[in-house]
Design a protein around this nucleic acid. Structure first.
Length: 509
RNA sequence: GGCGGCGUAGCUCAGGUGGUCAGAGCACACGGCUCAUAAUCGUGUUGUCGCGGGUUCGAGUCCCGCCGCCGCUACCA
């Protein structure tokens, strides 16, 4: 039994939850469910990032205090995750007292270790943005957003000695080949480090909506710097309820590719500076893109639109929770960009879910009803399906273990296909009731039982439902994978037909 | 500009270290079946593997050039 601490990024509350967030979160959820299934001690963390000037501004615009504003916006994420069946163990908000406490302890440790110093930050400042730009980012010295002249500004700030960790980080990467996956993203981070690291300013004195610097109350920590520490807050760093040793460094950060630098450069360096091991693994995923004018006319302008306008709730209302989860996990390879489209969801739904899985369950239930009096028989130990099942079990498990949900589901669906084929070959519906039919249907039911176990990290709701329909009590997750993902354990039971699990979606064109 | 990646069947994509590597799924065609959600099963078609050279007995697979697309290039969550 191992330990598995998995995190999503904490989402910035000024965004409304969209499919991009859901993509990260559903993948993390499936991984968490998989590891619970195999008996690991799991902690699954998600949450919201609530500091920074933009939040303060948004609050003011809405006539609320920052805290009131974030109370409201953070709740939207919880609602979205509840709707998607996200089984998080902890939902962190960076405005919580526990976070302030941990951040201050963590940064004090870095400070006392000599990696934080005071200096003057000089930069080109845009008054409208209230933000700094580099020379390269500016357009002829003007703000790229407002087009107004940038002014040279100086601000006294606390700096993190990131430059001190160049060699240590490279060494860590060299010694931990799997630190960042997939490898292309690892290389990106690696070459960034190799290109030389500059110290970063980590505090602001111009704003107040943040965690105060304990040794200099005029400053608050810059949002990203406090945000990353949420991974420590959730395991009680520096507090009475400290369980860092239980969960660190058995950590897996699932992140989108846009925040690689923070998680693959800053964060491990911060951990080192605080005297901790860096996280053990950062899994980077790509983006889902909308290539054509599939989802809405307003998105048709340009190809490759990011999915910022698509609310998870809209999708779950239309297709159901499990189908959306399935689609998000199955369609794209984790780490690559993928296509997201209404047609894509419909195609997956109809072929994989309705035609393959749903129909298999339905046809088996019908034949058991007519040929076995509705009583599911037990499987044969020497069934030819057994080989297919064992292959699926092995491949599915291996894929989940290496953060490859797409591959895991593909392997599981191999067993569904094999079972449909098996039924076709033996045609039990042509047989007279008796031992022969019983044997075939017992095998099919056993395959279905195994499928519900293998697919439960992706579609917990539907898997529970199938589990019940084949006469089993409880849920696939009631026992450890190692004990139940074995051919031959289906004890028989009363099989219920029920309504179609996934009614086909008729094309509307 | 620098570094890196991509371009393989109509579609989405697999293809460590060169020799059944020309593949999978979807779509499509034909045939079977009729238990099942007009579902399912079997068989099959489709490709100059971006373009042009080169190395090699042999190259999607290595090298050079070109075309097209994309990512990163520091304080934006």
């Amino acid at each position: 039994m191992g330990r598995f601490y998995i995190t999503t990024p904490i989402y910035y509350v000024n965004d409304a939850p969209h499919v991009g967030h859901a993509y990260s979160t559903v993948n993390a959820d499936a991984m968490a469910r998989w590891h619970r299934l195999v008996g690991d001690d799991v902690k699954f963390l998600t949450g919201t990032d609530e500091h920074g000037q933009k939040v303060a501004d948004a609050a003011e615009k809405n006539g609320l205090t920052p805290q009131e504003w974030t109370d409201r916006t953070s709740a939207r994420f919880r609602e979205a995750w509840d709707a998607l069946g996200i089984s998080y163990d902890d939902f962190i908000r960076t405005t919580e007292p526990r976070h302030y406490e941990s951040v201050q302890k963590f940064l004090t440790a870095i400070y006392e270790n000599g990696y934080i110093y005071k200096d003057v930050y000089k930069g080109l400042y845009c008054v409208s943005c209230e933000d700094y730009y580099t020379v390269e980012a500016s357009i002829d010295g003007n703000c790229p957003i407002h087009g107004r002249p940038l002014t040279e500004m100086e601000e006294e700030n606390w700096f993190f000695r990131l430059s001190a960790f160049e060699d240590k980080l490279l060494e860590y990467y060299d010694r931990h080949p799997g630190f960042v996956t997939p490898e292309t993203k690892r290389n990106e981070a690696y070459s960034f480090i190799k290109g030389g690291l500059r110290d970063i300013s980590i505090t602001r004195s111009s704003i107040s909506w943040g965690v105060p610097v304990p040794w200099d109350e005029k400053h608050v920590f810059y949002v990203w710097y406090d945000a990353l520490i949420n991974y420590m807050t959730a395991i009680g760093y520096g507090r009475a309820d400290n369980e860092v040793e239980d969960w660190w460094p058995f950590s897996h950060h699932l992140i989108g590719k846009e925040i690689i630098r923070f998680h693959c450069v800053w964060w491990p360096a911060m951990c080192m500076a605080a005297g901790l091991e860096p996280p053990s693994h950062v899994q980077v995923h790509g983006w889902l893109l909308v290539g054509g004018q599939k989802l809405s006319k307003t998105m048709a302008q340009e190809g490759g639109v990011k999915l910022t306008d698509i609310a998870p709730v809209v999708l779950t209302n239309e297709f159901g929770v499990d189908p959306i989860r399935y689609y998000l996990l199955r369609e794209a390879v984790l780490g690559n960009d993928g296509e997201f489209s209404h047609e894509g969801i419909t195609a997956r739904y109809n072929t994989d879910l309705a035609n393959n899985l749903g129909n298999l369950v339905a046809r088996v239930a019908t034949v058991v009803g007519s040929k076995c009096s509705g009583l599911g028989p037990t499987p044969r130990a020497d069934s030819s399906l057994r080989v297919e099942a064992e292959t699926a079990i092995r491949d599915t498990a291996a894929a989940w273990d290496r953060f490859a949900p797409q591959s895991a589901l593909e392997a599981t669906w191999g067993l569904i296909g094999a079972t449909n084929s098996y039924l076709e070959r033996l045609a039990p519906w042509k047989m007279e009731p008796g031992p022969e039919v019983d044997a075939v249907m017992g095998d099919a039911l056993e395959a279905i039982r195994l499928v519900t176990i293998l697919a439960t990290p992706a579609m917990p709701g539907v898997c529970d439902e199938i589990w019940h329909r084949i006469g089993l009590s409880g849920s696939p997750i009631d026992h450890s994978f190692q004990q139940i993902a074995i051919w031959g354990l289906y004890p028989g039971g009363s099989v219920e037909k029920g309504d179609p699990l996934f009614p086909r979606i008729k094309s509307e064109s």
